[in-house]
Every structure is written in C-alpha cells, then in structure tokens.
Design a protein around this nucleic acid. Structure first.
Lengths: 174, 174
DNA sequence: ACATTTTACTTCATCAGTGAAATATGACTT
DNA sequence: AAGTCATATTTCACTGATGAAGTAAAATGT
C-alpha cells in the first residue's frame, strides 16, 4: 500500500498551490477534509485486511458486531440498515451470508409479521469472541504516542465534526 | 441519510457492553477507530454527493485535482496511482473517462517512451475553477465551532494517526 | 368494511471497483 | 545482443453495492 505520509506531503503542497490560484478557498478546512478522507480510507483498508482471513467484509463485521453488542443479541433488518448505514438490499445480502454461515438466524416477528427478527447465535458469539482479541494489538498500536488528552481531544473533535455533518445533511444542492 | 449522531450514540453503548464481556479490549481506541470510520465515510458520502452533478466520482475528482495542483499540470499513470491510492486498472479507466471529456490529455513521454504523460487541459482547468468554489461554503460549515486551536489539533492528531498507520502497514497477519 | 397508503423486506438486473494474468513496449545490465 | 526489469494497458472473472420493481402485512382513511 502507498505510504500515507507521502500522500499527505504531496497533498499539502497541492493545497498550497491551489489556494494561491483560488485564494477564497478555505485551505485549512479543505486540508482537514482530505486528511480525514485519507486516514479514514486507510483505516478502512486496515480493517478489511484484518477481516479478510475470517471471510468477512466491513459491513458483515459491523452487522455482526451490532448484534453482538445488543443485550438480547437481536435486531431487525431495518434497524441494522440504519446503524450500519447500509441499504436494505445490501442488508438482505449480508443477512443471507451470515445466516448461511450459522452466525445469525432469521425469524418472523410475533407482533408484526412484516418484521423479521435477526438474532446472533451461540456460534456467532463464539466467533466474535475468538476473532476480536487478535485485533487489539494493532488497534492499540494505531494510537501509540497519544496521550490521554490527545485521545479525549480527538474524540471530541470528531464528535463535533459529526454533529456539523448531520446539520449539513439537509441536502441543499450546491 | 442516517443521522451520524444516532449511530455514534448507539456505538458508544455497544462498545460499553462489549468491553464488559471482553475487558481486555482497548475500548477508548476501538471507539476512536469506529468514530474515524463513521465520520470518514460520511465525509466521503458528502463529497460524492457534491460531485454527482458534475458526473465525477471521488477517484475522478482526486485525479483531476492532483493534476490541477501540479505546477506543470502533468503527471504519469503510475504516479497518479500512488497519490490517488488507486490500482492501475482503475487509473486506466479514470484516465479514459477524463480524456473522453476533454479535461485531460494522454501523450507519450519524450525521454522514456514506455511512459505516458497525462496533462490537464485548459478546459480541465476551467472546469475545476468553476466547480470548486460552490463547495467552499459546505466545507467551511463542517468546521463551524472549531477554534483555530481545534483545527491545528485535529490536523496534528490525524497526522500522528497517519504516521502510526504507516508504521503498522508491514502486513504482519494478525 | 373496504380501499388506500405506509412499512418492511426481498428479488432481479446492473454497475463500479478490484485482482490476476496476458501483452506490448522500452530501458537497463552485463 | 540477450536477458531482465519497469511502465502501461487490456481482458476477464468476481465481489460488493445500488436502484427499481415486486410482495406481503399492517396502519389509516372514509
């Protein structure tokens, strides 16, 4: 994979030059955007890499983890779509795949028969408990050299950014 | 689109529960990872949304911007692959599309005739200069409420994270 | 009570992106 | 000059994601 640091150095120069041609550009903010995008996709790559041996992709994993983290280990496709930010179509596919592997079950809801209840199985829980720990060292290593204040700060700033993105969303076409 | 803030709240509870079952999990770090991933993909979504009216996707845009930001407005497929973190296959496709729209040209290199020189055209530059400014308000809005120190800090922390990810990369399978 | 609308998924056709392998060409090494 | 390496493109098979339409059940209006 390409060195992130190189790309960043290159980007910094690029932004510098562009902001000389187009001075009204919010250069600092644009740079932060690109940084977020780069680090985000690098992180995604890293995650997919760790998931590959388990034959899972990001959405599969996320779906499974949401179920795992539920007190009762269950949810519905609609809810999973919302929290995993996936389309319904995709969630059907993910669910199919996980059911086939015996990690979750799909059942009809008693109250509302339109609804489908998805539940993690005992095998699913064991699977998560086995695959998760080997990831921990790399996760920790990502934050090497971060003080407690750094981590708090990063969390706070990302939260603020998330909030602003939510406000932005009422999609007024630019 | 789903509210990021909801997803974050849900994630916080989820991590809390998981870390009770699996106490050795680096909970703070894992939470920051997920935050980064969520904000990153939301940002990506926002970007793609802004690009759609121009019939560009993220890779197309990035490729074009790299060329635009070059003093001489030119590069090679290999270099573009590196900085846009794209595979060669994809870069060929991107280049084809941009050439067809007259935004860039593909020519043979004088010194090394294996090489292909990709250059942004005058039309390409005009295109960038026209499409970029309407994005600025949204970019600025993303960082509403950020002090100068906040922006500096975010930049610093993302840079540090990027550095750690680079160190991590020597892919020792977990 | 019946018709309409809404909600919850699923199915199907399609598309963008990716990896692997094949091809072509040119440069470098000895 | 021959062999090896580097650069770029093309082809192909595949995965993952998406949009449009379809089905079924429940909620709502009249």
């Amino acid at each position: 994979m390409a060195q992130l640091t190189n790309c960043i150095a290159m980007m910094n120069e690029g932004i510098e030059r562009v902001s000389q041609i187009i001075p009204q550009m919010p250069a600092v903010e644009a740079r932060l955007c690109r940084l977020m995008l780069m680090v985000g996709s690098s992180l995604e790559e890293e995650l997919e890499f760790k998931l590959k041996p388990h034959k899972l992709n990001h959405s599969d994993f996320l779906t499974l983890m949401i179920l795992y983290s539920r007190p009762d280990g269950s949810s519905t496709p609609g809810e999973l779509c919302e929290f995993a930010t996936q389309g319904a179509t995709n969630m059907t596919r993910i669910t199919n795949a996980l059911v086939k592997r015996g990690l979750i079950t799909r059942g009809a809801s008693a109250e509302d028969r339109r609804r489908v209840v998805i539940r993690i199985t005992a095998a699913g829980k064991r699977f998560v408990q086995k695959m998760l720990p080997p990831m921990f060292p790399r996760v920790s290593a990502m934050f090497a050299g971060f003080s407690e204040a750094d981590k708090r700060n990063l969390g706070r700033l990302l939260g603020k950014l998330a909030h602003n993105l939510d406000q932005l969303d009422p999609d007024t076409q630019p």
